[in-house]
Lab assay of single mutants.
Amino acid sequence: KTEWPELVGKSVEEAKKVILQDKPEAQIIVLPVGTIVTMEYRIDRVRLFVDKLDNIAQVPRVG
């Protein structure tokens, strides 16, 4: 699995749990929505963009 659209609106902790069940090797990085990030693709990275309430604001994707 490479993306988790069902996690939008969920808490960071809930999202981490689901992603690590699907992809145990994932390196999860939590960032505020709108953060500028590098464009290199990494198969072991999932970025979680969160709103001010620490809920997932964008679809988490591998990369």
Rank of each mutant, 00 (worst) to 15 (best):
G63I: 08
T35K: 12
V62C: 10
I43N: 14
W4D: 02
Y41E: 15
E25Q: 11
T2N: 12
R61K: 08
N55Q: 11
V33C: 06
V62P: 05
K52Q: 14
K1N: 07
Q21D: 09
L53H: 14
Q58H: 10
Q58C: 10
R42G: 13
K10T: 10
E6P: 02
L31G: 06
V46G: 00
L20M: 12
V33D: 04
Q58L: 13
T2R: 09
V12P: 03
L53W: 14
A15Q: 01
N55F: 12
I43A: 13
G63T: 10
I28D: 01
R61P: 00
P60N: 02
K23I: 12
N55D: 03
D54K: 12
K10A: 10
D51T: 01
R42S: 15
K23E: 07
Q58P: 00
D54F: 09
W4L: 01
E40D: 14
D51P: 00
V50W: 00
D54E: 11
P24V: 03
E3K: 06
S11T: 10
V12L: 10
V37M: 10
P60T: 00
K52T: 11
V46I: 11
F49D: 04
I28E: 01
V33K: 08
M39V: 12
V46H: 01
V30W: 01
V37Y: 13
R61S: 12
V30G: 03
V18Y: 09
T2C: 07
P5D: 02
K10S: 09
W4F: 04
V46A: 05
E25C: 08
E40S: 08
T38D: 15
V18C: 09
P60A: 03
S11F: 08
E25H: 12
K17E: 09
S11R: 08
L7F: 01
K10I: 07
V12W: 05
D22G: 04
G34K: 07
A15N: 01
L31Q: 13
T38S: 14
N55V: 10
K16N: 05
A26Q: 04
T35P: 07
K17C: 08
F49E: 06
L53P: 04
Q27K: 13
P5C: 02
I19V: 07
L7D: 00
V30P: 03
R61Q: 09
L20W: 09
Q58V: 12
I43T: 15
L20S: 11
T35V: 07
K52H: 12
I36D: 15
T35Q: 12
F49W: 12
G63M: 12
N55I: 13
V33H: 08
P60E: 04
E40N: 09
G34Q: 07
Q58F: 10
I43F: 11
K16M: 07
T35I: 05
E3T: 08
P60R: 00
L31C: 13
E25G: 13
T2I: 10
I36L: 13
P32E: 07
F49L: 08
P5I: 00
I56K: 00
I19P: 02
K10Y: 08
R42F: 08
L20H: 14
D51Q: 01
K10M: 13
I19R: 01
D44V: 04
T38A: 14
V46E: 01
E13V: 12
P32Q: 09
Y41S: 15
V37W: 08
I29V: 15
V62L: 12
W4C: 03
E25Y: 07
V30K: 06
L20E: 07
Q27L: 07
I19E: 03
R61M: 13
M39K: 12
V37N: 14
P5Q: 04
K52I: 09
V50S: 04
R61E: 08
E40A: 06
E13R: 10
V50A: 06
M39Q: 14
E40K: 08
I29E: 15
E40I: 02
V59Q: 00
E25A: 10
D22L: 03
T38C: 08
F49H: 04
K1I: 12
P5A: 03
D44H: 10
I28Y: 05
V8M: 10
V62S: 11
P5Y: 00
G34F: 03
G63Q: 14
A57C: 09
L7R: 02
V50Y: 06
K52P: 12
D54Y: 09
T2V: 10
V8C: 05
R42Q: 15
Y41K: 14
V59T: 13
V62T: 12
A15T: 01
A26R: 04
Q21P: 00
I36C: 13
E40M: 06
K1T: 08
L48F: 04
Q27P: 03
D44L: 04
Y41A: 14
N55C: 11
D54H: 07
E6G: 06
R61V: 12
A15I: 00
N55M: 14
I29S: 12
Y41D: 15
G34Y: 04
T35D: 10
R47E: 15
P5M: 02
L31W: 05
R42D: 14
K10E: 08
T2W: 11
V18W: 06
P32Y: 04
K52Y: 12
A15E: 01
S11M: 04
I29M: 14
E40Y: 04
G9W: 00
N55R: 14
K17M: 10
R42H: 13
E3R: 06
P32C: 04
D22M: 05
R47L: 14
L53F: 15
V18K: 11
K52C: 08
G34D: 11
Q21R: 13
E14A: 09
F49T: 04
Y41H: 12
Q58K: 13
R47Y: 11
V33R: 07
E25R: 09
I36R: 14
G34C: 05
E14G: 04
Q27M: 07
V50D: 01
V46T: 02
E3N: 07
A26S: 09
I43V: 13
V33W: 05
R45S: 15
V33A: 11
K10F: 08
Q27C: 11
S11V: 03
D44M: 05
V50E: 00
K23S: 08
D22E: 12
W4P: 00
L20F: 08
S11H: 15
Q21A: 13
R45E: 15
W4M: 02
R45V: 15
D22Y: 06
I29Y: 08
Q21N: 09
A26V: 13
Q21M: 11
A26Y: 06
V62Y: 10
V59R: 03
K16V: 06
I36A: 15
K17R: 12
M39R: 13
P60W: 02
E3L: 04
Q27A: 10
L31D: 08
S11W: 06
G9S: 03
D22A: 08
R45Y: 15
R42Y: 08
V12I: 08
A57F: 03
I36P: 14
G9V: 02
V50Q: 01
K23A: 12
I43E: 15
K17A: 10
A57T: 11
K17T: 10
K16D: 00
F49P: 02
V12R: 06
P60C: 03
V37C: 14
L53M: 13
G34N: 14
I56N: 00
S11E: 05
L7H: 01
K23G: 02
E25D: 14
I43W: 13
T38H: 12
A26N: 01
R47P: 15
K17Q: 10
I29L: 12
I19D: 03
E3S: 12
A15C: 02
W4G: 02
K1M: 07
P24F: 00
A15Y: 00
K52G: 14
V46R: 02
E6N: 05
V30Y: 02
L53R: 13
A57M: 10
P32M: 07
M39P: 15
V59D: 00
G63N: 11
V8D: 02
L31N: 09
E14D: 13
Y41P: 13
E6S: 05
Q27G: 07
V37S: 15
N55E: 07
D51K: 00
V8H: 03
V33T: 10
V30C: 06
K17Y: 10
F49Y: 13
G63D: 14
D22Q: 09
V18P: 02
T38I: 05
G9R: 01
K17N: 07
E40L: 05
E13W: 07
I56C: 04
G34E: 11
L48A: 02
I29F: 08
L20T: 10
T35S: 13
I36N: 15
D22P: 03
K1F: 11
E6H: 07
D54A: 11
L7M: 05
I19C: 00
D51L: 01
I56P: 02
P32T: 05
P32L: 05
L7C: 05
V62K: 01
W4Y: 10
N55Y: 09
V12M: 07
Q27T: 11
W4Q: 00
S11P: 14
G9Y: 01
D54G: 14
R45C: 15
I29T: 14
R61W: 08
L48E: 02
V46N: 01
V8N: 01
D44G: 09
E40T: 07
I36Q: 13
E3A: 08
I43K: 13
K1W: 05
